[in-house]
Amino acid sequence: MEIENKSEKPRKKTGRPLSFDREVALQRAMLVFWRYGYEAASLQELTSAMGITPPSLYAAFGDKEKLFLEAVERYSTENCDALLCLFNQAPRARDAIERLLQSAAVDFTCPSHPPGCLMNTAATNCSASAEHVQHAMIERRDHVENMIRTRVETGVNNGELPPDTDVSGLANFYWTVIQGMSTQARDHADRDKLLAIAAMAMRAWPAPK
């Protein structure tokens, strides 16, 4: 008689494999949030764009909030990586900021995605129930401003800027310009207008002493 080996652990049941490309679905969801914002993006609009059913969305991403945060994390990571690369390639702090503004003007008006910046538009006006989402977006925006501040500070340390430069104030100024450019793009400003704003903003760059 065969004796049952009770020491063997039961095998875990594996979930059903996804019947869709998760990365493609996430990219499409990101575009919906980008266009409509977190709260205005309906479940129907999301699932329709993603090409999946609501149960599939919940199974793959958890819920709408988790889907949004994952989409924002993807967007934020890609943009911060690109920003870091841009800063590393720029020979001077002034070049870095100027290229940042010019790059923003091009990206905010790119026809392949909604206008403006996802981090500046997707969760600016949310109800109290979405406070967690709003805080997450603020943290990501602060991270970008900190990257700008660090690059300006490097310029001061390298003697490219006066030693008494208000590093935080200068970083905040250029980050505010970028946020304004995003709003302008949402209001259908074209690339030339944004590039002109970028050029005007660079006139505020402190002259070396």
Rank of each mutant, 00 (worst) to 15 (best):
W205R: 09
W34D: 14
R141W: 07
M30Q: 13
S19C: 10
A82W: 06
K6I: 12
K12F: 05
V177I: 13
E39N: 11
E153C: 12
R151Q: 14
L26V: 07
S103K: 06
A25E: 00
R74C: 08
F87A: 00
A71N: 02
A90C: 04
M1G: 10
L100K: 04
A93N: 00
R94V: 04
S182K: 01
V32A: 01
A96S: 05
Q44G: 09
T150L: 09
G51K: 04
G15T: 12
L83M: 13
A199L: 13
A198N: 06
H135Q: 15
G51F: 01
P55M: 07
Q44M: 08
A40M: 13
S129F: 15
P206Y: 01
Y36F: 15
N158A: 13
A40L: 12
K66G: 08
Y38A: 06
C110K: 11
Y75V: 00
S7C: 04
Y58S: 04
E160Q: 14
S127N: 12
D81E: 15
G155I: 05
I178H: 00
N157R: 15
I197P: 06
L57Y: 02
T77E: 10
C117A: 08
R186N: 12
V144N: 05
N125V: 11
L100W: 03
E139L: 11
S112P: 02
R22G: 02
T154M: 15
F68D: 00
F87G: 02
R28K: 14
A60Q: 08
A40R: 15
R186W: 12
E2Q: 12
E23K: 15
S129C: 11
E4T: 10
K193L: 13
D166E: 06
N5I: 14
T121Y: 10
H188S: 11
V156P: 00
A189K: 05
A96P: 01
L118G: 03
A25Y: 05
N5L: 12
N146E: 15
E23M: 09
V24G: 02
R16W: 07
D190K: 07
L67F: 12
V106G: 10
A29P: 02
Q134D: 09
D166A: 05
K12Q: 14
L26F: 09
Q134G: 10
E2S: 11
I97P: 00
A105N: 03
R94C: 04
G51W: 05
C85A: 14
M1T: 13
A82P: 04
G15E: 14
F87C: 00
N158F: 07
L161K: 08
Q102P: 02
A171T: 06
Y75F: 12
Q27C: 06
H188I: 10
T183Q: 13
S19H: 11
A93L: 03
D81Y: 02
